[in-house]
Each structure stands twice: as structure tokens, then as C-alpha cells.
């Protein structure tokens, strides 16, 4: 792919935490590119620094070494990044609609102009009619949908997702994966999706980046040539199996 299609270039990114017991290398050295409207999955074992990587990109943590190059003149991370956390992190004193509008208030944009968009996004994530509910009236899966709508409200180019479905049961998770792919294809965003589930990474991604255990190195990058739109039946195909097996091998599980 050509260079102007690139949104993000990550070069030798390192993160070292200084603790009382010495230095802890959370992120070895990671280099990869993310293209516009690409769905990139990042997979790796627990504690391999996946979350650290996302937080550095979002500006929540300082990097120790390396570079994040954004191929865009006006890229303000606060405006152009939407973050979906592991937990839904909804403000339980706000109704669903007001939760979705939180980033608009933080960014000091005109709330009125975004109310319609918030409603559209709630439709997009399948929560039409729940605008005036409080979060604790919703199930875990529904709460995470609200947080996806919230990450999209300010129309960021890049959506960072940190194991967003990790807390859900397997069946709900499969449903949410399909939903996410639909939302992604309709909203035309670039997604960086972290998971420790290899089959989830392969099923969702255009590309899967494999990180090793700590200190994490990038040990592989796979272009997933499965047809889109993806369907659950593809999980039963030999191609899908080959991808997952070779990632397992890379991670030395088998």
C-alpha cells in the first residue's frame, strides 16, 4: 500500500517502567504501520504490554523510546482518537445518551449539534430506545456498546480498543464481534484492537500483529486474506485454522 494511505507509523516504541525493584520493560521494541480504515488486531499473552501500547498512542502514558508518526497534518490525539476500554466505564449517574455525549462536553464542543449524532450512533450499536436509561439498567454487553458509541461521538479517525469484549461470555462476545465489524464498515474508521484471543484477532482483523510475552517484541504480522464481510462460518475454514495455528506457533503455545 502507498504511503499516503498510512495513518500511523510506530517505530521502535519502547516503554520502561521504573519501579522500586528496578526497571521493568513493559514494551520491548514495537514497529508497525496502520493504514487508513484498516482493522488491525494486536494479540499477545497477558501482561505483554498491549494496554501500555494503546495508552501511549492515546497519550495516556509517556513513551520511553521510539516514535509515533502520524501521517496527517492536523492530528490532535484528543480529537482524533476514540478509546474503548476493557471495562465500559460509563458514568452511572448519567443516562445513556449523556454518557455518549461526554467527550463532546470534555472537548467543549456544542452539545446540541451532537445530540442527533449520539442518537444515530446508539441506533448503530443497536441501542435504539435506551437513550434515557441509566447504565445499571443495561447488561454488560449493552454497556460496552454504549462505550463504543461514546468513542465514536466526536468522529475520531482512530479507534483504540483494549480488549473491549474480554469480560463478556463467549456467545455475547461472538455477537459483539459481528456487530463491531458492521459498525466498522459503516463508520469507516481505523481500528486498533487488542485482544489475547487469537481467533478473535484473526476473525476481526485485516492484519494481526503478534506480540511476545514480556519484554514484548513484535514476533509476527499476518495479513488476513479472509473475505469480507466476515461470517462466523469462516471460522470453520482451513484458511482460518492455518492463521490461528501459525500464530499459536509464533507464541510457542504449540
Amino acid at each position: 500500500m502507498s504511503d499516503n494511505n498510512k495513518l500511523l507509523s510506530i517505530r521502535n516504541l519502547k516503554k520502561v517502567y521504573r519501579t522500586r525493584d528496578g526497571e521493568l520493560e513493559a514494551l520491548g521494541s514495537v514497529t508497525f504501520d496502520v493504514n487508513q480504515q484498516e482493522f488491525v488486531s494486536i494479540v499477545g499473552p497477558s501482561g505483554c504490554g498491549k494496554t501500555t501500547l494503546l495508552k501511549i498512542i492515546a497519550g495516556l502514558l509517556p513513551k520511553s523510546e521510539g516514535e509515533i508518526i502520524v501521517n496527517q497534518d492536523s492530528f490532535d490525539p484528543a480529537r482524533e482518537v476514540g478509546f474503548v476500554f476493557q471495562k465500559p466505564l460509563l458514568l452511572h449517574w448519567r443516562k445513556v445518551l449523556d454518557n455518549v455525549l461526554l467527550p463532546i462536553e470534555i472537548l467543549k464542543l456544542d452539545r446540541k449539534k451532537y445530540v442527533d449524532r449520539a442518537r444515530e450512533l446508539l441506533n448503530l450499536v443497536g441501542l435504539e430506545g435506551f437513550e434515557q436509561r441509566y447504565p445499571n439498567e443495561l447488561s454488560g454487553g449493552m454497556q460496552q456498546r454504549v462505550s463504543i458509541a461514546r468513542a465514536l461521538i466526536h468522529d475520531p479517525k482512530l479507534i483504540l480498543m483494549d480488549e473491549p469484549f474480554g469480560a463478556l461470555d463467549a456467545i455475547t462476545r461472538e455477537k459483539m464481534n459481528l456487530e463491531l465489524l458492521r459498525i466498522w464498515s459503516e463508520s469507516k474508521k481505523t481500528i486498533l484492537f487488542i485482544t489475547h484471543e487469537i481467533s478473535e484477532a484473526v476473525f476481526l482483523g485485516d492484519r494481526v500483529i503478534v506480540l511476545s510475552a514480556r519484554p514484548s517484541k513484535m514476533v509476527g504480522s499476518y495479513d488476513i486474506a479472509l473475505e469480507r464481510p466476515r461470517a462466523l462460518s469462516q471460522k470453520a475454514t482451513p484458511e482460518f485454522g492455518e492463521y490461528t495455528i501459525s500464530i499459536y506457533q509464533k507464541l510457542e503455545v504449540v
Binding site: F83, L89, I106
Partner: peptide
């Protein structure tokens, strides 16, 4: 973090 990443 939710507010911080948006530079609140």
C-alpha cells in the same frame, strides 16, 4: 483516563 485522553 476517560477524561485524560480527551485532554480534559
Amino acid at each position: 483516563d476517560l477524561v485524560r485522553y480527551l485532554n480534559g
